[in-house]
Write a protein that binds this DNA or RNA. Structure first.
Length: 155
DNA sequence: GCCAACGTTGGC
DNA sequence: GCCAACGTTGGC
């Protein structure tokens, strides 16, 4: 099993929203590095659900990949802000996965706290100017985050 | 709201 | 293929 971190602005889509809807297609990713990470996900992988542009910014819970990468339908929708005229049905440029909630953290594990965890110093998340919205997380980073959040999860 | 960092676009 | 201009991200 692999671990990941997904960024979402809670004003747009929060962890509570994920709990409410049950399963969510993670569409709208339009960055190649993030897309490649989406494509590397496998069903059953676990994701830290990160609230960006929030007070505080941080991890709100854990989500599970319930469907591996498939074409993001918004790229074909001219009415969508995520429409990509250069993409084609034959060779879709953008992908998405489906995710479902696993456990909400009792409180948001803030970016500030993450920065204080040993394994997180090397994460793209804590680098200056980091904007990557889908990134890999090491097993050490994942377990440190769970521990700091006070969450026990059977893997 | 500010602004640094970064990715993308497009003229050449 | 370079690079300036521009748009977006996201912490603060």
């Amino acid at each position: 099993m692999a671990f990941w971190l997904l960024k979402s602005e809670p004003d747009v889509f929060s962890y509570a929203d994920l709990v409410r809807v049950g399963v969510e297609p993670w569409n709208g990713v339009r960055n190649y590095q993030a897309r490649n990470n989406l494509r590397a996900m496998r069903e059953g992988d676990l994701c830290l659900f990160y609230h960006s542009n929030a007070k505080p910014a941080g991890v709100a819970g854990v989500a599970r990949v319930v469907k591996a990468a498939y074409p993001d339908d918004l790229q074909f929708d001219p009415a969508s802000p995520y429409f990509d005229p250069k993409s084609s049905q034959d060779n879709p440029r953008w992908s998405m996965v489906d995710v479902a909630p696993v456990v909400a953290f009792p409180a948001v594990l803030s970016l500030d706290t993450l920065r204080g965890l040993p394994a997180w110093t090397s994460s793209p998340l804590t680098q200056k100017g980091a904007r990557l919205s889908v990134m890999p997380v090491t097993p050490e980073q994942f377990s440190e985050a769970l521990q700091a959040a006070g969450v026990i999860l059977e893997l």
